[in-house]
Nucleic acid binder design. Structure first.
Lengths: 145, 145
DNA sequence: GACTCTTGCTTGACCATCTCAAGCATCCAC
DNA sequence: GTGGATGCTTGAGATGGTCAAGCAAGAGTC
């Protein structure tokens, strides 16, 4: 079953652009529902995988460390996040999600309506295929075997 | 060949988050190379598909129209873009990419190194499959037959 | 210990992005 | 032509982003 022959990398890149634009819009809207900006939502999402040092957030979000200070300041002021001193290195501050922060992450994920509706058009096998292909394209270098 | 059984929507959503983060970082870096911010790059990318009214850009980029005014101001000042009156409606201004603007878009697309490297790990059939699946998830509602 | 080097975080300055409220010009319906 | 809707701009205020500078703390050397 030849899905559609002749998809060159430029066409795929173009589709990435459109798809990610749609995802980003959906994400931004879901975050706005919680009175969070896209950057704040993205930061909380990273933290949902476990505590991260300020430096680590700056690396993941690909921005200057000084930027993170302000974002965490605002999230901390709202009680969604907490700075904790690192036991091993007193320079380092680990950022931890509070229960309220976890709730916010859940709420955002639950309200990604457009994206979820799109995913619902795939059956289980198609989801598995998409997952495998996307993973190869975007997480190759962090690659476990 | 069962790729990987049991990928539920939440896992796929999670992978979207990571993948789009990687894409966004790559895009931002490529845009920065041209002395453009991510928003400016995204705007130019939209315009590469043809002229768009200010209002249309605001809709596509999912932000307030007043925002677009500033972005286009800066792009126009740098000669990457031009405002043209719409023949049919004198309220509307169509934004057109200049040749310099087209060059900038090409340069950004050419320097999406991480993403291109990831795509190179796929063969032609896998690209076609990924294209078809992504398209179904994210462009269903604009759907031509 | 003292000296230096590096690293992690914060601060301040400066611009870009984003939203909202308000305003103006134009179109459209009546 | 009057009134209402629409397209764009402006200005205020908060957030996001970079850069340069600074402080605190680990790490290596003596």
């Amino acid at each position: 079953m030849p899905k559609s022959p002749r998809v060159d990398p430029d066409q795929l890149l173009e589709l990435f652009s459109v798809s990610f634009g749609a995802y980003y819009g959906d994400f931004t809207a879901a975050a706005a529902r919680e009175n969070l900006t896209a950057s704040q939502g993205k930061t909380l999402g990273e933290l949902s995988r476990g505590p991260v040092a300020m430096r680590g957030l700056a690396d993941t979000l690909a921005c200057d460390a000084s930027n993170i200070t302000g974002i965490i300041d605002r999230l901390e002021k709202r009680g969604l996040v907490r700075r904790e001193p690192s036991p091993g290195d007193r320079r380092v501050k680990n950022v931890v999600l509070t229960p309220e922060g976890e709730q916010a992450v859940e709420a955002i994920r639950a309200h990604m309506d457009t994206t979820r509706a799109g995913m619902d058009t795939l059956d289980a096998e198609e989801r598995a295929t998409l997952h495998a292909l996307l993973k190869r394209v975007f997480t190759a270098r962090c690659g476990e075997s």
